[in-house]
Structures are given as C-alpha cells and as structure tokens.
Computed example of a mutant assay.
Amino acid sequence: MAEVYGSERPRRRRGRTLRVVILTLLVFLIVGVVVLDRFSNSYAENVLADKVATEVANQKAESSRPVVTIAGVPFLTQVLAGKYEEIRIELPDFKAQTGSGETVRMDLLDIRARDVKAPLSALRGQGDVVAGTVTGTGTIDYRLLADATGQKDLKLTEKDGKLVGSGVLAISQTQQVPVSAAADVKVVDGKVQVRFSDVNTPGLPDNPLVRTQVNAFFAQMAFELDVPKLPLNLVVQELQPLPEGLRVTFGASDVNLAAAGV
C-alpha cells in the first residue's frame, strides 16, 4: 500500500501544477487580448482625431484638438464585423465664420455618428465609411446673437422655454423706457431667423405714435444669422432656447465619413 500511495501523490502534484500553469497562461492571454483591444481602440481614435482636425481646417473653422471616442467593447470584434455602435466626436472651442462675416462660437460642438459601417479595406484607406445618422449639438451664446442685430442695447434671454428680447426705447430726448418682446426663432433657408412679437411696454401710454415707435424698434431688432458650413455635411434641424444660450441641433443621414474627411 505504501508504494501505491507514494506513486499517486506526485501525479496529483503534477496535475495541480499543470492546472495552475494553464490558468496562468489563460489569464495572460485574456489580459493580452484586452490590452491589444484597448491599444487598437486608442490608436483608431487618434487617427480619426487627426482626420477630423484636417476636416475642420478644410471648412475654414477652428477648434481645439478633437476628442474622438469609439463606443462599444470589445473594439476588435467591431473591426472584424465592419460595424460600429457609435463614434463620438467632440470639438472644443469651436469657431466658424458665416457668409456674412459673423463668427459663430460654441464651447463644444458634440457630434455623434451612429450605425457606422466600415469594411476592413476602409482601414487601409480603401472603401467607404458610412454613418446611418450623424447628429451634433452646440450652444450659441445670446450675446453673439444679439450682436448680429447691430443693436448694442438688445439683450436676449430665456424665460419659460422661450427666447425674450429686451431693450431701451427712446420715446423722446429725455424719456427712455424698457421694452421687451417674445422672439420667434426658426430656421429658414439654412439661416437662424429671429422675429419679435407680443411686445410688452409697461408704463407706456397706449397711443398710435408710441405703438409706431415700439413696432419700429422691434422690427429693427429682427435679424438672421447665417449658419456656417459645418463638418460632416451637418445642417440645422432644431433650435431650443436654454438659460445658457441657444441650443442648436444639427443632423445628417447616410454620411460618407471617408468622403467628408473622416
């Protein structure tokens, strides 16, 4: 019996050692795959960021270095499938010139490309990279919009989800009164158009002369702001007054990111 037990113990030790070695190798393999996946993801994001920066410059716009994030884990399975969940492109400190000379500024132009299809050949610069939908959001400061009117006394603010314009109306050389009106904001032929209505003139006498002055004041305040040419063929889709500024939503569909510079 001593001989039998003596022969089994080394086998058991060898079996445990083999399992430990295999498990260790598996751990190293998994860690290696994860590291490779994250490295490949980071490399692809940096390449895209460089291309987006070039596209921004080609549009005569400016921004800090783009921040690109390719969503979805693992990354390499998306590469092999040629499909990506979402690519997020952030353009900090975005600036672009309009056709009429104004500079549109946004602290951040946040772009999302979804349902992106890209064959392996596209990674070598061949083939199309097509996003089913591309959306972007940014906020324009109210001071910029007010400056577009050329009226230095106009102030734009948000109240109860609506844009409100206010200013000071000179009734005479000695009398100036505050006036305000709701602003109708919409997109017309690719331009941000602002018109005023529902004029509020507290304390003013209700007579034809005063009404004429008030109407002329706000008619002069009406303005249009050209929308600059944006990366990825984005166009304005929605405008939303917020306390911090006018939120602009851009969009496009079936965008060839490779053709657009990305």
Rank of each mutant, 00 (worst) to 15 (best):
D141K: 03
K152G: 14
K162H: 13
S172E: 12
K152H: 13
D160W: 12
K152F: 11
G136L: 04
G167Q: 02
Q126Y: 02
I171G: 06
V134M: 03
A131R: 07
L123S: 03
V134I: 09
A122I: 04
K155W: 02
Y142M: 08
I171C: 09
T133I: 11
T137Y: 02
L145T: 03
T149N: 06
Q126F: 10
I140G: 09
A131I: 05
L123I: 00
G127E: 00
G125R: 00
T139R: 11
I140E: 06
T133A: 09
R124S: 15
D153F: 00
T137D: 12
Q126N: 02
I171N: 07
I140Y: 12
K159I: 02
L144A: 13
K159N: 11
K152T: 12
G167D: 01
R124V: 11
T135L: 14
Q151C: 02
L169Y: 03
K155Q: 09
K155Y: 05
D153R: 03
V164H: 10
A122L: 06
D147Y: 01
L144D: 08
T135V: 15
D128E: 14
L123R: 04
V130H: 08
G150A: 08
T157W: 05
A146T: 09
G161D: 05
L154H: 07
T135R: 15
L163S: 01
L156P: 01
T135E: 13
L163E: 06
V130L: 11
G136V: 01
D128N: 15
T139N: 03
Q126A: 07
G127N: 03
V134C: 07
D141F: 06
K152S: 15
V129I: 14
D153A: 13
L144F: 09
V164W: 11
G167M: 07
D147A: 12
S166L: 06
A148T: 08
V168C: 02
V130C: 06
T133E: 10
A131K: 07
A146S: 04
K162F: 12
T139F: 05
G150Y: 07
V129Y: 01
R143F: 13
L154D: 02
V168T: 15
S172G: 15
L169N: 04
V134T: 12
D153K: 08
V168Y: 06
